[in-house]
Simulated assay, not measured.
Amino acid sequence: MQITDAEKWILSFYKQRGWTKYGPFIRTGFLMEEVGEVARAVRAYEIGRDRPDEVEQPKEKLKQELIEEMGDVIGNITLLADIYGVSLEEVIASHKEKLTKRFAEDLG
């Protein structure tokens, strides 16, 4: 799936459920929650949780959970971008330009 197709799907899916009604402050809170879940998934995948109340999961299941949590982050980034009238392509292009300029000497 291309980034613009993913963006359209995310916006449509979230809108159908009423999830686009939240403003930027609430959306940012959701984003931070999801980033925390990515951190938890990375820890579980890399070093485990080491908790007696949790059963260790196979690596494949842990990787799938990580992928799902990263998707939740992308969903929230997409909605924030939409609030400000910015496409994901613009975000990525700007990011690329910023880093290319910043590290121009390193790129040869």
Score class of each variant (00 low, 15 high):
2 Q>N: 14
46 E>S: 10
41 A>G: 06
93 A>C: 08
56 E>A: 13
4 T>D: 15
103 F>N: 11
42 V>S: 02
48 G>L: 04
107 L>G: 01
12 S>R: 13
41 A>L: 05
101 K>E: 15
44 A>R: 02
93 A>W: 05
107 L>I: 10
81 A>M: 10
2 Q>W: 03
74 I>F: 12
22 Y>G: 02
76 N>E: 15
68 E>V: 07
10 I>H: 03
2 Q>V: 01
73 V>P: 02
22 Y>F: 15
22 Y>P: 00
101 K>P: 00
87 S>R: 09
54 E>H: 11
60 E>F: 06
7 E>C: 08
33 E>A: 10
80 L>Q: 08
84 Y>P: 00
78 T>S: 11
93 A>F: 07
32 M>I: 14
91 V>C: 11
62 L>D: 00
22 Y>S: 11
60 E>D: 12
108 G>D: 14
11 L>F: 04
56 E>L: 05
107 L>T: 03
54 E>S: 04
57 Q>S: 10
91 V>H: 02
44 A>G: 05
51 R>Y: 06
58 P>T: 07
99 L>T: 07
72 D>M: 03
56 E>W: 02
63 K>W: 09
21 K>Y: 03
17 R>D: 01
99 L>M: 12
39 A>F: 07
14 Y>V: 05
6 A>M: 11
72 D>T: 04
34 E>H: 12
89 E>D: 14
51 R>E: 15
31 L>R: 07
7 E>I: 06
27 R>D: 08
22 Y>E: 13
